[in-house]
Computed example of a mutant assay.
Amino acid sequence: MTNFVWTLRVYWEDTDAGGVVFYANYLKFFERARTEWLRSLGIEQQALADQAGVVFIVRSTAVDYNAPARLDDQLEIRTRIDRVGPASVQFTQEAWRGELMLATGAIRVGCVDKSTFRPAPIPDPVLATIKSAR
């Protein structure tokens, strides 16, 4: 089940010398999709940092690459929530071009205090919103 879909276009800056999307850029695409997902839920990360004193950070990633994306391709980044804990969210994210899945990633995001970067609980209203989006 997909919780959120965000589309993007591949630009020159996204490609490597071989003319394909540089592998690390999929992590950027996934990050942007998670940010847009939060926005779609009414959660602004800067406001969360300013008002609640917490930020989300990537705790771990694992990405499998199946096929290359190229300049001018339009991609769909599909985001699914796998698990929600009191201080973290586990996602599966996929990059698709049409009917072809190009890459899939398992990303764990943690909530931390913005000044100490120590784990912190996801604020209750944000946690409830995330859980309801599953």
Score class of each variant (00 low, 15 high):
D124R: 13
F4T: 00
F4L: 02
M1S: 15
D50H: 14
D82E: 12
V10M: 11
V126H: 06
W96E: 11
V55K: 07
K131N: 12
F22Y: 15
G105H: 02
S40N: 14
C111T: 15
L27R: 05
L75C: 10
V54A: 11
A47E: 15
A24E: 15
Q93K: 02
D14K: 10
A69P: 08
N3E: 13
E44I: 09
D50F: 07
A106T: 05
T2E: 12
T61C: 05
P119G: 12
W37N: 01
L75I: 07
G110F: 03
K131S: 14
T2W: 03
A17Y: 05
V89N: 05
T92P: 01
R34V: 00
L27M: 10
N3F: 07
L100V: 13
V126F: 04
A62T: 10
K28M: 08
Q93W: 00
R134P: 02
W37F: 10
I107K: 01
R39D: 04
V21I: 11
E36F: 00
L71G: 06
V89T: 12
Q45R: 05
A128C: 09
T79G: 03
I77M: 04
P121G: 07
F91H: 08
D73V: 06
S60G: 05
D113L: 06
F29H: 03
P123D: 14
Q46V: 13
A17V: 10
F22S: 14
L75W: 02
R39M: 01
S40A: 14
K28C: 08
A87C: 12
W12T: 12
R97F: 04
Y26V: 06
F22A: 13
P86C: 10
A67K: 14
T79D: 03
L48T: 11
V109N: 08
W6K: 02
D73Q: 08
A52C: 15
N66C: 11
T129N: 11
V55M: 10
A128R: 15
A69E: 08
E31T: 02
R78Q: 07
V20S: 06
L127F: 04
I77E: 01
Q93A: 01
R80S: 14
T92Q: 07
A17K: 04
L127Q: 09
A69R: 08
G18Y: 02
A106S: 12
E99Y: 07
R118F: 01
L27V: 05
D82S: 06
Q90A: 13
